[in-house]
Every structure is written in structure tokens, then in C-alpha cells.
Design a protein around this nucleic acid. Structure first.
Lengths: 158, 158
DNA sequence: CGTATCCCGGATATCTATTATCCGCGATGT
DNA sequence: ACATCGCGGATAATAGATATCCGGGATACG
């Protein structure tokens, strides 16, 4: 079980966009260069974030990406689900209904206890991620980093 | 992000072993047949559970598997970590230290906020799984299933 | 003591998902 | 009109999960 690295990329990029002036979109290659990421592949994840309504993409010259809403209203879960999907990591294959010990379908109207437990843990995981916003992530940056990022983004935009 | 199906297999098998008489081990092919699983591949997961100290394997004729301790003392997390490992699903690649926006290593003595949030969510997931035992899973079986499993296991053992 | 049974560990093959890149298309601002 | 930039599809390469097989060692039974 491993999370896509796109989750890390997406969280860093949305955090960085939260530090940019709202009126000026950031180009994709600037985002990629800022973190040393492959530009073409990062595009896939940014597109996913755009489709999910987390980012807003502006085509054309002086185009780029900006947040679709304020950082206080974007949760970490929003970013994670945009990239990883919202389906539970545990996929129940109903093996209780297979083999010599197969339980009759009548007794399977309720999900089995194993599935319930795994789904409940998945919900706890998502609840935890829903409790943190992108604004919180920016607040927890080491001192000086925000200012430096603002300068770098301004230089790239000019 | 997907959990190995071995987790489902392991949880069902440990639950089934909890329903067997403690003095008689259950052969691997009986476990596989009970749920319609490939015997050879199930062996890999049962070996992992044995190495983790969840199951106890007895070689030789009349050998097989039994629980290494009482079902009340085996948590769902024990089984999950035996098969999936105990490392967090999120692997931080420290991209904050790469690219044009690289943060100096001096400022990276603390883990970044993104990693902290993901690790905290992972802890919440594990805490949830730690709160349920194999005995709880058996208690939540539909009425009649326990008795039928006991009969099947007795027939297979005789 | 010999033999049959059963688990262990390594080697191997297949399949799927992730990672990564490229190119044509459409949209936008100058 | 033209250059810039994001969108989406097609395509490889790589890693991990899935599945199988076989030799070796341990144990029970005759």
C-alpha cells in the first residue's frame, strides 16, 4: 500500500499557489522548477486538481494556475482525493461467499464485519485529512520561507 | 492507493482459526478451500502472519496453523501490519529541498507540515484498526455461521 | 528407523498500476 | 494572425502485486 507521489506534489503546489498573489496565475513550468519536478508529468496531476475544482487553469499567454478558492476553504483531503480518488483503499472481494464455507447471499445483506472495520478506519483517515486546510500548511512553514517564495514567484511572473 | 488483497485473506483466516478448537491446527489447504483461495499464494500471507507472531505453524502430519494467542489479544492492526507492513502509506520525498525553491537543510530539521499531517492521518487509521480485535470480528458474524464453520472445521480435521 | 505429510524460503513468471513523455487540439491575450 | 499555454489521448518503461513451483527441513506414525 503506497500513496501516489502526486499527492505530495499536489499538496506542495497548492501550498505554493496559496503564497502567490491571487491576481496572477503561475505557469506550470514555474511550479515544476520550484520543486525540481518533471514538468510533463506534473501536468497530469494539476489537471486532476483542476477537474476536481481545487485549482483553476487559465489558458493563453500569461496563463497558468491559481487556487479555485481561498486556502482556508481547501482541505488536505480535497487535494488527496483529487489525485488518489475517493474510493476506500480496502476493496472487499466478498470471499465469505466463495469456497466450501460460502455463506448464503441471504446472510450477506449487511456488509461483513471486516469490511465495516476497514471502512471505518478509512473514514478516520479521511476525517483527519479533512481537519487541515491548505492555509494551515502555509502557516506552519519555517520563518522566512514564505517571504522567499513570494520573491521567487514575483520574479518568475515578471 | 490500494491495500493488498492479502489483508482480506489474512483477516478472514485468522477469524476462522479463532472459531477452531485450540488444540487442533488447521491445514493450509483447508483454509484455502474454505474461502476458495489459491493455496500456493495464500501460503505467502500465512507465512507473513507467522513471522509476525500472529499465527503459529506446526509442521509434519496433523500439522497446520493455529492462533499464536487468544483472539481477544490479536488486533486487526496486527494482521494488517503483518501483511502490509508498518510503514506509512505516505512517503515524503523532501521535494522542499529540491528545485529553484529549495529550502536550506538547516530549516529542515523538523519534518515539513505536509508530512506531519499525512503521518497524523496514518496514525488515526492505525488507531482505528487497533481498537478492534479478532474476537470482535467473530462476535459480529451472522447467526448460525459460527456453528456451521465449527462443523466444517471438525469434518476437515477428522 | 523409514516414510508420508506439511510448512518454509527462494526463484520465477505474469499482470496491473504507477511513473513518465510526447504531440495535436483548442483557448486566450497581444 | 500569431505566439503562448493548458487539455486530453496515446504510448513506453518501471515497479509492485499476484500466482506458481520446487527443494529442504521438521514432525507424526507405523
Amino acid at each position: 500500500m503506497k500513496l501516489s507521489q502526486g499527492v505530495e506534489w499536489g499538496l506542495h503546489c497548492t501550498s505554493l499557489l496559496a503564497q502567490a498573489p491571487a491576481d496572477r496565475p503561475i505557469r506550470r513550468d514555474v511550479l515544476a522548477g520550484h520543486y525540481g519536478l518533471p514538468d510533463a508529468y506534473l501536468a497530469k496531476h494539476l489537471q486532476a486538481l483542476t477537474r476536481a475544482g481545487v485549482l483553476h487553469a487559465l489558458p493563453g499567454p500569461r496563463g497558468g494556475y491559481r487556487l479555485a478558492r481561498s486556502p482556508e476553504r481547501i482541505t488536505v483531503l480535497d487535494v488527496v482525493e483529487a489525485i488518489e480518488g475517493s474510493t476506500s483503499a480496502f476493496v472487499c472481494q466478498e470471499i465469505r461467499q466463495r469456497g466450501t464455507g460460502a455463506v448464503s447471499p441471504d446472510q450477506c445483506s449487511n456488509p461483513c464485519a471486516i469490511r465495516s472495520v476497514m471502512d471505518q478506519a478509512d473514514a478516520a483517515w479521511r476525517d483527519s485529512l479533512r481537519g487541515v486546510t491548505v492555509a494551515d500548511l502555509v502557516d506552519r512553514l519555517p520563518p522566512g520561507v514564505r517571504e522567499r517564495n513570494a520573491d521567487l514567484l514575483a520574479a518568475a511572473g515578471g
